[in-house]
């Protein structure tokens, strides 16, 4: 038993879990903003695939990581505009239009990859930046403060998004619109504009998540995300629509996955049960949801299109 615990509670697993958690966290934070305004976006995975491909392609051609990150944000923005128009102005059914975005992203990124790249080639990946002093701290220093810029950024966004939602006028508008768009609208808060902007923020972060994922790996493959975006959406419910909760969920998911890998690497999980072990993150998330659910309330107007009459 002790060896299991030793394996799990190690610097390497912590660092690995944080790396795995980052794309979930970025996409989940974006989805939180969108859902707080009452818009469910199931297309996150598709947006991530598109932004991941275009970021990769940009770096492949121009060899500039920052340009790649910029492109991933831009792709998120374009997809955000599309999704906002579809859901806010055309008042389309949110769950299903999200599936449309997902299919488009999955197919189009695959198509573009096959046509323009073909054989996987590596680009340079985001370098780790050791934070002076902090990274020299015993044990935790190595695990927490020796990552790429995007990872620090993702975790710094947690308080930032929380502040945005809680302290700013825009954040208050978002929450009001997510609870009761009619009431908010009658008080002079444009529900449509608020949702539009919230969706843009959400998709930009999803785009960034795709960029972070691909530039961390340094290589793209069709269906790179393997459904990561869908799990990110689930983690928003898990996190009870709070940025800190989403962070906990993302870390839980990443750390469980990393722990399972480490236990397998140390041959502590019999090989014949490797698939059962691979279920762990999903099963634990459901279990956590069962424990947590019922105690929190979703934004009342979530998935309800708003129509001004």
């Amino acid at each position: 038993m002790l060896e299991y615990l030793e394996a799990i509670f190690s610097v390497a697993v912590l660092a690995s879990g944080i790396r795995l958690a980052t794309p979930y966290l970025l996409a989940g934070l974006g989805e939180t903003v969108g859902q707080r305004s009452g818009v469910l976006n199931l297309g996150v995975d598709g947006v991530m695939q598109l932004s991941a491909f275009f970021a990769y392609w940009t770096v492949l051609v121009h060899e500039n990581l920052w340009l790649g990150i910029g492109v991933s944000v831009l792709v998120g923005l374009v997809m955000g505009i599309i999704y906002a128009i579809v859901t806010v102005f055309f008042e389309a059914q949110q769950g299903i239009s999200g599936i449309g975005i997902f299919l488009f992203g999955l197919g189009f990124s695959d198509l573009m990859f096959q046509k323009n790249v073909g054989t996987p080639r590596f680009v340079k990946s985001l370098p780790d930046v050791r934070i002076p002093v902090l990274s020299d701290l015993p044990v935790l220093g190595e695990a927490l403060f020796s990552h790429s810029v995007v990872i620090y950024g993702a975790f710094l966004l947690v308080p930032a998004v929380a502040w945005l939602l809680r302290k700013t006028t825009f954040g208050m508008n978002v929450r009001a619109v997510g609870e009761n768009p009619q009431a908010a609208d009658s008080l002079g808060v444009s529900a449509q504009r608020t949702r539009f902007i919230a969706i843009l923020i959400g998709n930009v972060l999803a785009g960034l998540a795709g960029g972070a994922l691909v530039l961390q790996l340094g290589v793209f493959q069709p269906n790179l995300t393997q459904g990561l975006g869908f799990i990110a959406v689930a983690l928003v419910y898990f996190g009870a629509w709070r940025p800190s909760g989403v962070m906990v969920g993302a870390l839980l998911y990443g750390l469980v996955a990393a722990s399972v890998l480490q236990l397998k690497a140390l041959q502590l999980i019999p090989r014949s049960y490797s698939d059962i072990a691979a279920m762990a993150p999903a099963v634990l998330t459901i279990a956590a949801l069962v424990i947590l659910a019922g105690r929190v309330k979703a934004p009342a107007a979530l998935t309800r299109p708003f129509a001004r009459h």
Binding site: A92, I96, G100, F104, L106, G107, F108, L111
Partner: peptide, 17 residues
């Protein structure tokens, strides 16, 4: 993959319509 992307576009347009 083009067909997958096309499916997505069909969905987006039809829900919007």
């Amino acid at each position: 993959a083009l067909a997958v992307a096309l499916n997505g576009i069909v969905v987006i347009f039809v829900v919007s319509s």
